[in-house]
């Protein structure tokens, strides 16, 4: 087995005149789905950008498979809060962006892109432009795009935050299914407690100014999780305990 997919030690980061993160240390194991919970403006996106290699170096060490992150890597994929689809490309072309669009894609990649659109529940959307997709459909295309890239480490920055409650729950199920098809290390940022408990193997609570890891809890719910999981006493117990912790931080 190769080195740990992601390990942070003593990571800190400041924008000019504003310290956002201080002394973060944690690791994400292979096949582990870790949710990062925290209030808005707390530095969660900054953390993901750092891990993705989109921000210049910070204090401390960020290692992906044992190597320091300096720039975006082939084996790391990110999904943003906005779907960030190119409006001038069809859904299929957007999925194929990591392969250089249709023109640059091999026959195998083209086939895989079509299979992925089917897997995210959009078998007929290949030729549609983003303006013809709803918010939920657009996020599914974004998921398919990241899966075409087939990274070993998934970074998801509140991918469902812009959706209504019903679509959010549906998308959480879609995401779980795709992840279960090939479980890999994932760092999933959210500010929704139920979403974190529903999806994660482990929950990190990031809070404070500058933000630190305040809690690191395991979620021992069996997989696959289903809509009924939300009625599980353990689910509710955890969600409630997290809620209390949040109230303590806020006070």
């Amino acid at each position: 087995m190769s080195a740990v997919p992601l390990s942070l030690s003593g990571v800190g980061f400041a924008y000019p005149g504003r310290e956002v993160l201080r002394d973060l240390s944690f690791t994400v194991a292979d096949g582990e789905f870790v949710a990062v919970l925290g209030p808005s403006g707390g530095g969660k996106s900054t953390l993901l950008r750092l891990v993705a290699g989109l921000l210049p170096r910070s204090a401390g060490d960020i290692l992906v498979k044992g190597e320091p992150v300096r720039r975006p890597r082939q084996d790391v994929g990110m999904v943003f809060q906005k779907a960030t689809l190119l409006p001038w490309r069809t859904a299929l072309d957007n999925v194929l962006l990591p392969a250089g669009f249709r023109r640059g894609a091999s026959a195998a990649e083209l086939e895989r892109a079509q299979a992925l659109l089917k897997a995210v529940g959009l078998p007929d959307a290949a030729g549609l432009y983003p303006s013809q997709l709803s918010g939920g459909m657009a996020q599914r295309v974004g998921l398919a795009r990241m899966l075409l890239h087939d990274p070993d480490l998934l970074l998801l920055d509140e991918p469902f935050a812009a959706l209504d409650a019903m679509s959010r729950e549906r998308m959480a199920l879609v995401l779980q299914e795709l992840w279960l098809a090939r479980p890999r290390a994932a760092l999933f940022v959210t500010h929704s407690i139920p979403e974190a408990v529903f999806l994660a193997d482990r929950i990190l609570v990031l809070a404070g100014r500058p933000a630190r890891v305040l809690l690191d809890w395991k979620v021992e719910l069996p997989r696959p999780r289903r809509p009924e999981t939300m009625a599980d006493p353990l689910f509710n117990e955890l969600a409630l305990a997290l809620r209390h912790e949040f109230d303590k931080v806020a006070a």
């Binding site: 779907a83 689809l85 409006p87 001038w88 432009y129 983003p130 303006s131 013809q132 997709l133 709803s134 918010g135 939920g136 459909m137 657009a138 996020q139 599914r140 812009a162 959706l163 209504d164 019903m166 679509s167 549906r170 998308m171």
Partner: peptide
């Protein structure tokens, strides 16, 4: 610029 002026997501539900 055929995409100009079109909202990127006309509706919020999936």
């Amino acid at each position: 610029v055929f995409w100009e002026g079109r909202p990127s997501h006309p509706s919020a539900e999936s």
